[in-house]
């Protein structure tokens, strides 16, 4: 950090206090509370919590529904990330050629970022609806074949498509920015050496995108673990038969519908560790941004 200019005084303390107070009350306290709940069990008739050690974790980890939730979360995370990043990368590389209509293409790809997750969920529920949407075509040919509320794999496909649709814009912005930060001199040198546009894409642009690629990989996976609630809640409601019961959704339904605070807290801790591990990987190995100039 740079050298400071002003001596510490009440002014600095007053400037720091609001932020520290807010993160203490709304970040550190709840996180500590989650830890406390995860290792204790509330008495059914009041009288405080008793220490139960790792019992809550044992219960959660031996619950087949929990592993089902982990499984579908991992599938969701990987599938949305691959789909969204693949699409974003393709579009960014071709938008970056800056042909006519470049600005229009760019806006048209960026704006879905602003659509709220529940709105995405609702719109896709309409699209995928067996009775009213575009998928009702399928049912006119093979009646009863397509129904999100009956077939688990169809429900999972639906949330993956909706989730990927929502993520494309974010990755696109980063890929495009990274492509545009490649110095012109490099591109020109490659062109002088006789590399045609497609050759430059493969041998110049893609390798230079590697840091951005890994950065986005981690961010996308983290986001799909934490940011999926809105889509699941409006698109499938966790069903059918818990097939789309993603981890955050399960924490919510166990904690606020089942009133099992200890179980929900144990799940929160596991998810926290997972997200922290991913963030750690990102800072440790990925954050080394590359500058070309």
């Amino acid at each position: 950090m740079r050298r400071a200019y002003f001596k510490f005084s009440w002014i600095a303390a007053a400037l720091l206090a609001p932020q520290l107070l807010i993160i203490f009350v709304f970040f550190y306290w709840p996180s500590a509370q989650a830890l406390y709940w995860a290792f204790t069990l509330e008495q059914p008739w009041g009288g405080g919590n008793t220490w139960v050690g790792f019992d809550n974790f044992r219960k959660v980890l031996s619950d087949p529904y929990y592993w089902g939730s982990v499984r579908v979360s991992v599938i969701y995370a990987l599938a949305t990330t691959v789909l969204a990043m693949g699409m974003a990368l393709t579009l960014a590389i071709f938008v970056d050629r800056q042909l006519a209509g470049y600005k229009a293409y760019r806006v048209a790809i960026i704006w879905p970022y602003a659509v709220a997750a529940p709105a995405v969920g609702l719109a896709f529920q309409f699209v995928f609806n067996p009775g009213a949407g575009i998928f009702s075509y399928i049912n006119t040919i093979a009646p009863g074949w397509w129904d999100l509320s009956k077939y688990p794999w169809q429900a999972v496909t639906a949330i993956v498509v909706a989730g990927a649709w929502k993520q494309v814009a974010y990755s696109f912005v980063f890929f495009l920015a990274a492509l545009q930060s490649i110095p012109r001199s490099l591109t020109e040198a490659a062109a002088m050496d006789g590399a045609r546009p497609l050759r430059r894409m493969l041998d110049l642009q893609l390798p230079l995108l590697t840091p951005t690629f890994f950065f986005l990989l981690v961010i996308n996976i983290t986001d799909s673990f934490t940011d999926s609630f809105g889509i699941v809640d409006t698109l499938t409601g966790g069903g059918p038969f818990r097939a789309t019961d993603l981890m955050v959704y399960k924490i919510y339904s166990d904690g606020f519908r089942g009133f099992d605070y200890s179980g929900a807290a144990a799940q929160s801790i596991i998810l926290m560790l997972l997200v922290m591990a991913l963030t750690f990987v990102q800072f440790r190995y990925v954050e080394k941004r590359v500058h070309y100039t």
Partner: peptide, 20 residues
């Protein structure tokens, strides 16, 4: 201390935050 708050989004610690 401030930097660490970036690691855990609200969704992950939703139940205890609600209690607060």
């Amino acid at each position: 201390m401030i930097f660490i708050t970036l690691m855990l989004p609200l969704e992950v610690r939703i139940v205890p935050t609600y209690a607060v």
